[in-house]
Simulated scan of single mutants.
Amino acid sequence: MIRPMQATDLPDLLALLHWMDAAPEREVLAPDARDLAELRLECEDTPALVDEGPDGVRAYCSLAPFRDGLALEGPLSERGADLRRLLRRAAEQAEGLPVYAFCARDNVEVRAALEEAGFMPMHTTDFYSVPLGALKGSRGADPVPPGYTVTHTLGLTDYRALYRAAEDAWSARLEWEPEVYDAHFSRDDVRLIALQDPSGRAVAFAELEFNPAEARADLTHLAVHPAERGQRLGRALLLLAAAEARRFPELRTLRVRAHDHMKAARALYARAGLTHCRAVVTYLRDGEEEA
């Protein structure tokens, strides 16, 4: 039976989350909490649907605000629930808004259910990783090309302009208010590394986030202005990010990501010795425009 989630369903949802964590190919966008009290707080303002079977909740999904529409959490199912029906019920709650979904490339069952429910694949994001000490070129000379300088701060206007020029603009960061931007880059686990050309203009930047619980540093964004490509600025930022992460002994691994159309970034990571570790497919519900 498909019905709205209740507080009494949270232990079953927590079990589903742990089941998902046990195998990378089961990954979908899902709540972050892995503790019952934290999960209760995370889910209290998020309407969700569950599929209840004879032994309790066997599937879960919810919709949360995302960009110009909604992001689908799930569908998460351990025991062969009717995912297609669950997704149709969730789509009815979207009220015509675009709905995005994210799942592991190898999650064949969920991908089939999403596509049958009218979701179309947009792109694949691949993740690459390397032990911090094994990154090629990380122990050599200063990686910054002559004439360029490093800064760890950017004004919001410069950040937006560079992000817009270097990326595909598919990011809520372009809409951040100044206080949100300042709060993000004042966090202890976030670093901004930017390169300025001889005139002082910011032409490239990288964002680094630390995850001590997994002994990992994530290079969440790496952007080089199109007019500056070919100057090895991407390589410089990658090496600078690794050097920053090595300052913290609890971090052991660097992880990066690249969409399937980002051929230059993929080539950079291969040359630097990173290996593929994860792939996530982004879906958009059919009939809606991409954000």
Rank of each mutant, 00 (worst) to 15 (best):
M1C: 13
L16K: 02
P226R: 02
I2N: 05
L135W: 03
A279V: 03
G133Q: 06
D12Q: 06
F127R: 08
L274I: 07
R105A: 14
E27G: 02
G74S: 11
G56V: 07
V144L: 02
F119W: 14
R89D: 13
L29M: 13
H184C: 10
A169I: 05
A242E: 08
E42L: 08
L192I: 06
V110Q: 06
Q231F: 07
E289M: 11
E289S: 14
V224A: 00
D188V: 05
Y159R: 02
R88N: 11
R285Q: 15
W170G: 11
H184L: 09
R79S: 12
A23D: 15
R105D: 12
L63Y: 12
G137Y: 00
S62N: 12
V110N: 07
D68T: 15
A59M: 06
L274Q: 02
A227R: 11
C61L: 13
A258Q: 03
L114F: 15
R164N: 06
V110T: 14
Y60F: 15
E290C: 12
A169P: 08
D182H: 13
A227L: 10
A33F: 08
L240R: 02
R255M: 12
H261Y: 12
G80K: 05
P98A: 09
R266P: 05
P146H: 04
L237D: 03
E78L: 02
C277G: 00
E207R: 07
D35L: 06
R58H: 05
A243H: 03
E167L: 09
F66E: 12
R252N: 04
P143M: 00
M5G: 14
E116P: 08
D55E: 15
D9S: 06
C103M: 10
Q93L: 15
E209R: 09
D35G: 11
R247D: 01
C43H: 00
V99R: 10
V130K: 01
L29S: 14
V256N: 03
P4F: 04
R278Y: 12
A264Y: 00
S186C: 08
R187L: 10
A169W: 07
A91G: 15
P178W: 01
G56K: 04
R278D: 12
L83I: 11
L251Q: 03
G200F: 01
A48D: 07
L268R: 01
E207H: 03
E250C: 09
L135M: 12
R89C: 14
P24R: 08
C103T: 15
R191E: 09
V50T: 09
G96K: 09
R58Q: 13
L208D: 02
A134Y: 00
K136Q: 10
L154A: 00
P131A: 08
A165S: 10
F102G: 09
C277K: 02
E175Y: 13
S62L: 04
D182M: 09
A270F: 07
R252M: 05
H225R: 00
G155V: 02
M20R: 11
T124Q: 09
P11N: 04
G56N: 06
R201W: 00
R34G: 10
D158T: 04
D35K: 06
R232V: 06
E52A: 14
